[in-house]
Amino acid sequence: MTAAGVPARRSDGALARRLLIGLAVAVAFILLGLPLAIVIVEAFARGAWTYLAALTDQDTLDAIRLTLLVALCSVVVTTVFGVAAAWCIARFEFRGRSLLLTVIDLPFSVSPVIAGLVQVLLFGRRGWLGPFLEAHDIRIVFALPGIVLATVFVTLPFVARELIPLMQEQGAEEEEAALSLGASGWQTFLRVTLPNIRFALLTGVLLANARAMGEFGAVSVVSGHIRGATNTMPLQVEILFNDYQIEAAFAVASVLAMLALVTLGLKLALERKSDTHTHEERPT
């Protein structure tokens, strides 16, 4: 009836309140603000021309192209996998369902270096399949397929993670209604399920993409660091940094930082959109 709870919070001591806010702002500034700021500052330390020159360097351009290609491949796999996983976990009951859920989350709790390592152990020259691949002249490690496989390993749960809780919450009623009205399975998915999960799906794709473009540990192990061929942007950052080309390293880093900011901004917008969307639909 009245605005319950407001006064309890208001009566927290004004001094304590200010102190805590001040502390929190300071923590956020030091831990989050400064790292972001220094990327921009260092990138432009020698002016815009150096910045542009660093970004238009042939090796860097190759790295950008490779990064986009890798991200595209792995996001497609992650999305198909995520939708399939969400469909079978959120719409059905079966034995081993919770085990499956745990396995889906597994890549999150494994070090990215291991994601790269396993590819080398499978496909590397002394790996399990190394002799076979060498005999047929197939290159996986130190080449695009290895980079994609390592990236997929790392990004695999992203879309599923966004979709499963949402689809569980939404329940199957709408799908059942569509099916009872004579829609086919695919029609039901495309016309009923997909519109309901579109914002979460986009969020998942967005996060998977950001991770794919920014992945370092996994890719670093399988890439071989061949300039102009198997270097992604994060690896290019590392190489430039270790070569003491600090400005160039930060210039490439600033592009990646921008990607992170855009990702965060879009994620926020999507969250807000899906909020208002659900509120419109359920006016209680």
Partner: peptide, 24 residues
């Protein structure tokens, strides 16, 4: 703004965070 910034470490590529923290 701060609320949104909390997710930064999730989104920022680790190599970028690495060199930024090193420089700091």
């Amino acid at each position: 703004f701060i609320d949104a910034a909390v997710d930064l470490p999730f989104a920022l590529p680790t190599a970028v965070a690495g060199i930024a923290l090193t420089a700091l």
